[in-house]
Structures are given as C-alpha cells and as structure tokens.
Amino acid sequence: MPPEAAPTWAEFVTGLDLFLDPMLCGAVAGLVLGFLGVYVVLRRMVFVSAAITHSAGLGVALTFYAQIHLSWLGSLANPFVGAFLLGIGSTLLLVANPARLGLTRESLIGLVFIFASGTALLVADRISQESHDIHSIIFGTAVLVSKGDLYTTLGTGSLTMLLHLWLRRALIFTSFDADGARVQGLPTRALDGLLLASIGLMVSVTTRALGAMPVFAFSVLPAMTALSLGRRLSAVFTLAAMLGLLSAVLGYLAAFFLRFPVGACQTVVAALFAALAMALRALRR
C-alpha cells in the first residue's frame, strides 16, 4: 500500500475554516499562560500549575461521568463548570498553609497531582464511550475546539490580561517583597489571591479546550525561556507571552503537517524554544 501523501499548505488553507478556531484558542491560551507563567516560575510554583491542570482535567472527567450516569443533573453537568470548580478548589488547597496538615508544600502538591491524575484515569475507565475525549483532555489530542470553548478562552484571557496589565506593579511588588508591600499599605493577601485565582481560572478554562499537558507546558516553558534571555522583567513578560503564542500556533501547524497529536506538538515546540534559549545563554558565557 503506498504511503499516504503528506498534507500540503493548499489543504491547510482549504480547511482554514476548521483550523482557525483551535489555532486562535491555542494562541490566546499560549499568550496568557505564557504571561502568567512568569509568576509561576519565579515564585517556584511550577508543579502547582501541574497539579491545577490535572485537577481541572479530573473536573472535566467527572462532568462526563455525571452526564452519562447522573442524567438527573441535566445541564448542570457542564465540563467548564467541572474544570473550574476542581481547578479553583485545588488552587485554594495548594495555597493554604500545609504545615497545619503536617505536610511540606511539595508533598501537598504531589498528593494533589497524583490523586487528580489517577482518579481521572479511573473515571475514564467507567466512561468507555467517552474515553477518547478523556485522553484528549489530559494529553491534548483534540484538533477542533467548540465555539463555546473558544469564546470562553477569549473572554477569560482578555479579562485576565486586562487585570494583570492594570495591576502589574502591585502584583510584582507583592510577589517578590510581600512584607515591604504590606508595610506600604498594599492589600497583599487580596493581590495574592487575585494572582492565584487568575492562574487557576485560566488553567481550568484552557485545560477544557486544549488538554492538561499543553496547558502545563505553556504555563512553565515560555517563562523559563524568557527568563533565560530577558534582562528586564517587563521584557520577560512580553517575551514569555509571545513565545507561548508562537508555541501554540507552530505546534498546531507541526501537528497538521507531521500528523502528530496537537497537544504533544505544542508542548515539544515550547520545550525546543526553552532548550534553544538555554544553549544560547550557555554560549554567551
């Protein structure tokens, strides 16, 4: 049997109506998560992001289960609501004082991550007719996104960026010198809560649309890359956002032309940018 011909640009352009929404959704997610990722990396919250994305994935899985087995819930069983509730819930749990539970923060993050991942797979086992969707939720193999997911991502992303650009000086001061900020009268607890809630919300929304793996990648790798290259914090934020956007778009194109899963391609492109940046930095020295 002759091998299948590789897709062409002409085919891509012909199908642009189909591909534009997921590319746009990925671009917005990459941009906003790349921006937020600077806080995630600098505040050493990398695996907090992983735990939240997998919790959001579990939320979506539980919603599918409810739709099939608990039909009396009706339209309340909405995947976005499931992702949001568990995403925000895990955010609140992870920012609480772990010492009260006799745990370190790392072990609490590990617990949430492992519990969410394992439970999502258990739930997937009970939803055999939806298991493909569960897989795509976790690993991001979905090529298409719904209009609802696109508009939710656009709306949430726009609101998040507006808030962050407006309050950026306060968020930076609070993040990196909380005591100094509090003494000068800034509402540091509220600002911290806003930062973490915006990360939790954006992760929840985009996990539903793109999958947990690319969302985790966007919230860590573009920021790491930007920090390797940037010398000013404002430049780092801009670069991280652009790299997130590029990783999403180029990853989608790579998936189309190379016939690979979308989420995995987006993740690898983001990782390649990071590797290139570190190589450049090593050469500079």
């Binding site: 600098l42 000086r169 990196f176 100094g180 900020a181 920090l227 000013r232």
Partner: peptide, 26 residues
C-alpha cells in the same frame, strides 16, 4: 530578595511609590 527576579535597580526604587491605593493607577 530573590536574585533570579530580573528587576533593574530603577524598578526596585519605583516600588517605593506604591503606597496605599497608588497601585490602582495603571
């Protein structure tokens, strides 16, 4: 103060301006 945060000296001094509700000005 975390050394990996790429703040310029000037950015750090500007944090002194943030008192009370000043942070609400974009």
């Amino acid at each position: 103060l975390d050394p990996i945060v790429p703040l310029r000296a000037r950015d750090l001094v500007a944090q002194g301006l943030e008192r009370g509700r000043h942070y609400l000005r974009p």
